[in-house]
Design a protein around this nucleic acid. Structure first.
Lengths: 253, 253
DNA sequence: CACTAAGGACCGACGGCTGAGCCTTTCGGT
DNA sequence: ACCGAAAGGCTCAGCCGTCGGTCCTTAGTG
């Protein structure tokens, strides 16, 4: 019994059942509370909000986020209990990112199972962003990214520091496009990748090679060569994918 | 008075205020009802669900979508009132996509204002997908896409038909990656673009030129050349962007 | 004519989110 | 030493969307 019937056979050869599965896929939207925990937690874990950073006051932040203060507090309390935030009361107090972040929790097994999808999503986001960044990056932005790449050179032995600067580089590319939406997309994708990347070993040689790719991407930005930027980014993403492929469980069922 | 204070100045040169704005941007998640209307409405308008298509029975569909039947019905009723769906009762009845779709509603002015962001999002999604598709497309998938491109050749005078086949091509690329998430992303981005594309004129020469780009992308899939696919897709997206640029209001404030 | 598969309608319960008010702590200034 | 401002901490009533049942109506099929 077919789940769906075409009224006529028009354009039948152009239709595909695959895309219909996605049309009828579950719609599950996160609650405001969950989304807030997610956003702030990811920003902290990615180093976008470094330890010691003071968050805006609750009354101010809930306005920016467009949620009620009670809801925001639920999220802040959750992040406090998980060790990401500390709060101090009284005048001059506030909510601060913890100096000692909790160890990264291992990602849920279903997220690990879907690692290839996550890599695909990364490919889909990063390559286009690299092209746009190459088209638009200002001299200042390029210079800033060069500083990041240079700084990474001295972090090849310290993976957490490397990874944080790596995230800065990729988010910096998104910022160079001038489109906030893309910064958000990049942040999400980097957050999703972090859990996977943390699972595997990172010898300095691998990090050095990755940073060499960063440098080639940067070079493409410098001369505003979109195709070259895309090409190098494809290589960069595939490199990560290949490394993961060696250490992950078999393909998804 | 700074909204946010760094505890120390560590890594200050790597920090950027731009990305923080996105961290604290509003979190507004759609309700299940809204998201359902959106999903089904977009699928219908894009031609993914052609006129006359019978949707799965309500009791079945709400299970697939992971929502209650009452919620689904709200969405179906809304789409019925807007003329996208018709329902017939009794055994053998069901909910069908209307044979005569309502005229496309003009997009809200704020969506038009943000047209450049939408194009950027498209670039970000499409280029990576083109690269992945080039890596993975099977011979069957390539052949299917070729049929679409060939069929488009005879639609250069009929814009609605052209646009529908165009959407099939781009979604077909996403399907060729084998990652459902990317099909969803592509569907969303095509839905967002449709409103903009409808605003402007489309002489056959422009459509022919666009389809020539389709053909070059296809050629890259055929020989599994990811970089070429990305390159041609960049051109393709930029072409649309340039056409829009001529007819849109000035840059965003 | 009975059965069945479909849409159509209703309602009570629940949970998340809102908005507002009030308390407590701490610092700066007078 | 006091007061006021600025912050987090707490509570509660109410709204709205969602759930998940139950029952009705319609219309083909055997």
């Amino acid at each position: 019994m077919p789940a769906l019937e075409q009224g006529t056979s028009r354009a039948a050869s152009l239709e595909s059942a695959a895309s219909l599965e996605t049309v009828f896929a579950p719609v599950r939207s996160l609650t405001a509370f969950e989304e807030t925990v997610d956003r702030l937690g990811t920003a902290i874990r990615l180093g976008l909000l470094p330890p010691g950073t003071r968050l805006p006051a609750e009354r101010e932040l809930c306005a920016k986020l467009g949620i009620a203060r009670s809801t925001l507090r639920q999220a802040l309390i959750a992040l406090g209990q998980s060790g990401h935030l500390r709060a101090t009361r009284g005048r001059g107090g506030g909510t601060f990112v913890a100096e000692e972040l909790p160890p990264a929790a291992p990602p849920p097994s279903d997220a690990v199972e879907a690692w290839r999808e996550t890599c695909d999503q990364r490919m889909s986001v990063e390559v286009g962003i690299a092209a746009l960044a190459a088209e638009r990056a200002s001299a200042e932005q390029t210079a800033l990214l060069r500083e990041v790449v240079d700084a990474i050179e001295s972090m090849l032995e310290d993976f957490p520091a490397y990874r944080q600067a790596d995230v800065r580089f990729h988010i910096g590319l998104a910022e160079a496009t001038g489109t906030p939406r893309l910064v958000t997309a990049m942040t999400e994708v980097q957050g999703a990748m972090t859990g996977l990347i943390d699972l595997i070993a990172h010898p300095p040689e691998v990090l050095a090679s990755a940073n060499a790719q960063h440098r080639r991407i940067l070079e493409a930005l410098h001369v505003h060569d979109e195709v070259a930027a895309a090409k190098e980014m494809i290589e960069h993403v595939k490199a990560t994918e290949h490394i993961l492929a060696g250490l992950m469980p078999g393909e998804e069922a």
